[in-house]
Design a protein around this nucleic acid. Structure first.
Length: 748
DNA sequence: TTAGGGTTAG
C-alpha cells in the first residue's frame, strides 16, 4: 500500500482529487509518520495550488513530527517550482524550531522567494544566517542575496556584498549591471561593464541585455542602438531577449532601417514565436509610423497574445487610427478574449486624446463591469476626458474613486487633476490639488501655470513661475508658453518682453513657434499691430498658421484691413480648409461695410466647399452633458429656453442693454440680426443650465469658438440678474462671470 | 542541482 501510494503521489499526472484520496488513506492507515510520503503529499498539494499558508503551517506541525532536512528541501523546491513563494518562506521558518540547519543548497531558492515577494525583512534574516554559517562565501548564495537587495531597491547593500566577494563570475556582474540599469543609474552600470572586462570576465548575452535595457529606459537610444551594433561586431548572436531590449530604442529613434533589419534577423532566427519579440516589434513599427508593417506582423501571429494586442492598439492610436483600434478592441472583446488593465487603459487613453471623451467615460464604466480594476495609469488617462468636456461632476467622481483606491500621491494623477479642475473652471480646486502634491514635477508646475493662464490670472501665473524656480525646478519651453500666454491675455507687454528675452539669455531655451505666436497675440491684441508684424518678419524660421492666425484675429478685433489682408494672404495657403480664417477676413470687410469684398470671400469659401464651423456649446447638468448647436431647435426643452431668454432680454432692455448687432456680420435687417444673436449656442446652454439647476448653483459652459461680444455682455448681465456664477470656456480662455462682471475685464 | 536579462497603457 505504501509503495502504491508513494508512486501515485509522485506521478507527474497526479490530480488534486487523487491527492485528497491519498491524504484520506494516509490518515486512515496512520502513515503520517512516514516523512517521505508526507512530503510528497505536501509537494503535490503545492503543485496543485490548493494549500493556503496557514493550512501549510498547521499540516507541517501536526503531521510531520520527524522531518529531515531532505524532506524540507524537496518541499521547498516543489513550492518554488509551483510559484508558491510564501510557502517557501513558511517551510523555511519551520527548520530552526525543529533543530534543523539549512545547507547551502536551500538558501538560493529561499532568498529568491524573498526577492520575488520583496520580503526584505526575511531576506535580511537569511543573510544573517548566511553570514553566521559562512555560506555567504558561496558565490551562488552571494549572488542570490545581491539579487534580493536589488529587487528590494537596496542598491547600497547589494554593492557592499558585491565588493566583498572574493571571486565574481559573469552572473553576479550581470546582476549588478542590470540592477543599476533598472534603477536608472546608467553611469554606474556602464562603469561596471568596463570594469568587468578589465577584470578579464567577458560579458554574455545577459550582460549585454542588461546594459541595453538601462540605456533604452533612460532615453539613451542612440547609445543603446550603438551598443547593439558593437555586440553584433563582437560576434554575439542576439536572442529574443536582446531583440526586445533594443527595439524600444530603435522605435524611439524612428530608425526604420534598423528596425527592418532586426525584423529580418528575427524571422531568420525564428524569434517571432516569442511574445516579447512580437510586442516589441509592433511597438517599434507603431513608433516609426509604419502601420502597414505593424499590421502585417500582427496578422502573421498565430495566436493573439495580450501584450501584442496592447502594443498593436497603442500603435494604431499613435498613428491616428483610433477607430481601427476601437474596432479591433471590440472584436476581440466580443470574442471573449481576456483583456487586461493595459488594454482598457490603452483604448481609454486613445479616446481621451482624440476627442472621444464620452466614449472614454463609457469605456471606464465598461471595464469595471467586466471586472477589470482600474489602476494608477488608468486614472490619469481618463481624467483629461472630463476636462475636455468640462464634466466637473464626472471629474470629481473619478477624483474620489482614486482616493478610495489609495491612488493619491501619484504625480501623474495629481497633474491630471490640476488640469481637469482648471479646465472645468475651478482654478482654486486646481491649486489645492497642486498644494497637496508631495513631489510636484515639471508637468505639475506647468499644469497649474497653464490653469492660471487659461483663467487670465497673470499675477498668479508669474508668482508660480518664481516659486517654481525657488523650488529648484527648471522651466521648459511649455512653462514659457504658459507665462507668455498669461501676459497676452492681460495685455502685459512689458512683462511679456521681459520673459521672452529671458528665455534664451537666462534659461538657454530658444523661442519656438508657440512663443512667437504668444508674442504676436500679446502685441497685436493691445493694438501694436506693426510691432507684431515686425516680430513675424524677424522670425528665424517660417511662421506657421498659428502665428499668422494670431495676427489676422487681432486685425479683426482692431479692424485693420491692410495687415489683415497680408496675414490672410499668408494664412490661406497654409490652412486652405479652415473656414475660420475666411470668416475673419470677411468680417473685417463687413465691419467696414465692404460688402462686395465680403461677398467675394464668402464665394471663395463656397467654391472650396467650406462652410462656417457651426458654433456649439456643452453644459453639464447633473450627470448628463448636453450639446447645443447655434440656431438648432432640436433640444427637447428649446421652447422653455427661448421663453426664458425672451424674459431675460426684456429685463436687460429695461436696464439699458442694447444688443451688440455689429457682431452679426451678415448683411441682414437689424431685427433679424437680433434674432440670430439669440440663437448663439453659449446663451442657449446658459439658459438650459438656469432651467435645470437650483438657484445659486454655478454653471459652466464650454464653447468651440471664441465667445462673441454680445454673448459676453448678455451672460454677464444674466450672472447679475439671476445671482449665478457662470464659467465660460472658449477656445482662448476662461470667462468667470459674477455680479455682472467678467474676470477677463472685457479684454480678450 | 540551487544564481543573471525582455514587450505592451499615462
Amino acid at each position: 500500500m505504501f509503495h502504491v501510494l508513494s508512486q501515485c503521489l509522485s506521478s507527474p499526472t497526479a490530480t488534486l482529487s487523487q491527492a485528497r484520496q491519498a491524504h484520506a488513506l494516509i490518515l486512515k492507515l496512520n502513515l503520517f509518520s512516514d516523512t517521505h510520503l508526507t512530503t510528497t503529499l505536501l509537494s503535490l498539494y503545492a503543485n496543485t495550488h490548493s494549500l493556503s499558508t496557514p493550512q501549510l503551517s498547521l499540516t507541517l506541525s501536526s503531521h510531520l513530527p520527524h522531518p529531515t532536512l531532505f524532506s524540507f528541501s524537496s518541499l521547498i523546491q516543489a513550492f518554488a517550482r509551483s510559484s508558491h513563494f510564501p510557502h517557501v518562506l513558511t517551510a523555511f521558518s519551520h527548520l530552526a524550531p525543529r533543530g534543523l540547519v539549512s545547507d547551502a543548497f536551500l538558501l538560493p531558492t529561499t532568498i529568491k522567494s524573498c526577492a520575488i515577494l520583496r520580503a526584505l525583512n526575511q531576506g535580511q534574516q537569511v543573510h544573517a544566517f548566511a553570514l553566521a554559517s559562512g555560506f555567504v562565501l558561496d558565490s551562488i548564495v552571494a549572488s542570490s542575496l545581491i539579487q534580493m537587495y536589488l529587487k528590494c531597491d537596496r542598491i547600497v547593500d547589494a554593492r557592499k556584498l558585491f565588493d566583498r566577494m572574493p571571486e565574481r563570475d559573469v552572473v553576479v556582474w550581470s546582476a549588478m549591471i542590470a540592477g543599476y540599469s533598472r534603477l536608472g543609474l546608467v553611469d554606474e552600470a556602464r562603469g561596471l561593464f568596463g570594469e568587468m572586462r578589465s577584470c578579464g570576465v567577458e560579458p554574455n548575452l545577459v550582460t549585454w541585455n542588461g546594459m541595453l535595457v538601462g540605456l533604452g529606459n533612460n532615453g539613451l537610444y542612440d547609445e543603446a542602438v550603438g551598443m547593439f551594433r558593437v555586440m553584433l561586431l563582437e560576434g554575439f548572436l542576439p536572442d529574443g531577449s536582446t531583440v526586445s531590449c533594443v527595439l524600444p530604442s530603435v522605435g524611439c529613434l524612428e530608425d526604420v532601417v534598423m528596425g527592418s533589419q532586426v525584423h529580418g534577423y528575427g524571422i531568420k532566427q525564428g524569434l517571432l514565436c516569442d511574445k516579447f519579440v512580437v510586442s516589441a516589434m509592433l511597438d517599434m513599427y507603431g513608433k516609426c509610423g509604419c502601420v502597414k508593417e505593424m499590421s502585417r506582423v500582427f496578422d502573421e501571429v498565430e495566436e493573439v497574445e495580450i501584450g501584442s494586442l496592447n502594443a498593436f492598439l497603442t500603435g494604431l492610436s499613435r498613428n491616428g487610427m483610433v477607430d481601427s483600434a476601437l474596432e479591433v478592441f471590440n472584436r476581440l472583446k466580443d470574442q471573449k478574449m481576456e483583456l487586461n488593465v493595459v488594454t482598457w487603459t490603452s483604448v481609454i487613453a486613445s479616446c481621451s486624446q482624440n476627442g472621444k471623451d464620452f466614449e472614454a467615460l463609457e469605456l471606464f464604466r465598461d471595464m469595471q463591469a467586466y471586472g477589470v480594476e482600474p489602476n494608477a495609469v488608468t486614472i490619469p488617462s481618463l481624467i483629461p476626458a472630463c476636462g475636455n468636456i468640462s464634466a466637473l461632476t464626472h471629474g470629481k467622481e473619478i477624483h474620489c474613486f482614486s482616493l478610495r483606491k489609495g491612488i493619491f500621491d501619484d504625480v501623474y494623477v495629481g497633474s491630471a487633476l490640476i488640469d481637469m479642475y482648471a479646465k472645468c473652471g475651478r482654478i482654486q480646486l486646481a491649486r489645492r490639488c497642486f498644494n497637496n502634491m508631495l513631489a510636484p514635477n515639471l508637468v505639475s508646475w506647468n499644469a497649474v501655470m497653464s490653469g492660471y493662464a487659461m483663467h487670465g490670472k497673470a499675477k498668479e501665473t508669474m508668482e508660480m513661475f518664481h516659486m517654481m524656480q525657488q523650488s529648484g525646478q527648471k522651466p521648459d519651453s511649455i512653462t514659457f508658453t504658459c507665462v507668455l500666454s498669461a501676459c497676452a491675455q492681460n495685455g502685459l507687454t512689458e512683462e511679456g518682453w521681459h520673459y521672452y528675452n529671458s528665455m534664451s539669455k537666462e534659461h538657454g531655451i530658444e523661442p519656438k513657434m508657440e512663443h512667437y505666436a504668444c508674442m504676436v497675440t500679446l502685441l497685436s491684441r493691445v493694438g501694436k499691430l506693426e510691432e507684431a508684424y515686425s516680430i513675424i518678419k524677424e522670425m528665424p524660421f517660417e511662421p506657421d498658421a498659428c502665428v499668422w492666425g494670431a495676427l489676422l484675429s487681432s486685425c479683426r478685433v482692431h479692424n485693420n484691413l491692410s495687415l489683415g489682408e497680408i496675414a490672410a494672404e499668408k494664412l490661406f495657403p497654409l490652412e486652405p480648409a479652415n473656414p475660420g480664417n475666411y470668416v475673419l477676413l470677411s468680417n473685417i470687410y463687413a465691419s467696414k461695410g465692404l460688402w462686395d469684398e465680403e461677398n467675394r470671400i464668402r464665394e471663395m469659401m463656397k467654391s472650396k466647399g467650406l462652410r462656417k464651423n457651426p458654433g456649439y456649446s456643452w453644459i453639464e447638468v447633473g450627470h448628463k452633458v448636453h450639446m447645443l448647436l447655434a440656431g438648432d431647435q432640436s433640444h427637447p426643452q428649446m421652447k422653455d429656453i427661448l421663453e426664458k431668454l425672451d424674459k431675460l432680454n426684456m429685463e436687460m432692455k429695461k436696464s439699458g442693454y442694447l444688443p451688440k448687432t455689429n457682431f452679426v456680420l451678415q448683411d441682414v435687417e437689424e431685427q433679424d440680426k437680433e434674432q440670430i444673436l439669440c440663437g448663439h449656442s453659449e446663451k442657449l446652454a446658459v439658459v438650459l443650465g438656469l432651467l435645470n439647476t437650483s438657484p445659486g448653483q454655478p454653471l459652466q459652459v464650454i464653447k468651440n469658438l471664441r465667445i462673441c461680444d454680445d454673448c459676453h455682455a448678455v451672460i454677464k448681465a444674466i450672472s447679475r440678474l439671476e445671482g449665478r456664477e457662470i464659467y465660460i470656456r472658449d477656445t482662448n480662455r476662461f470667462h468667470h462671470m459674477k455680479d455682472g462682471v467678467c474676470s477677463c475685464g472685457d479684454f480678450w
